[in-house]
Amino acid sequence: MKIDRDQLTAQVERMIKNGYDYLVKITAVDYNDHVEAIYTLRNMDANKDDTLEVEMSSADLWVPSVMKYFKAADWYERELYEMFGIAIKGRAVDRLLLEKWDGENPPLRKDFVWGVQYKTKD
């Protein structure tokens, strides 16, 4: 289901009420001009998966945090920030997870420049 990022938290809340209370994965795909963040939620009792797709332009990358609904979102959101440079609103991403870089050139974006020496932080 494609939704707007302003409605993301409200939609997640609605889905939790419908039994979708297990977060499988948050990931993203970069389509050059826009980036799509994909939230996969699961209703374990009904055995159903549903996805929420949030589309945003590459110039303005942010999504609201869903961490207050799912603790599982913590590391996924940090990964989203570090791999795609998507800012997470409503929480502090204080430490990078897998890489050590200075915030430029996120690795899973399509305009990633190979072979650049990273300035390391930490």
Partner: peptide
């Protein structure tokens, strides 16, 4: 707990 296991994914 079961509740935490669900929430922590």
């Amino acid at each position: 707990s079961q509740k935490d296991a669900r929430n922590l994914g």
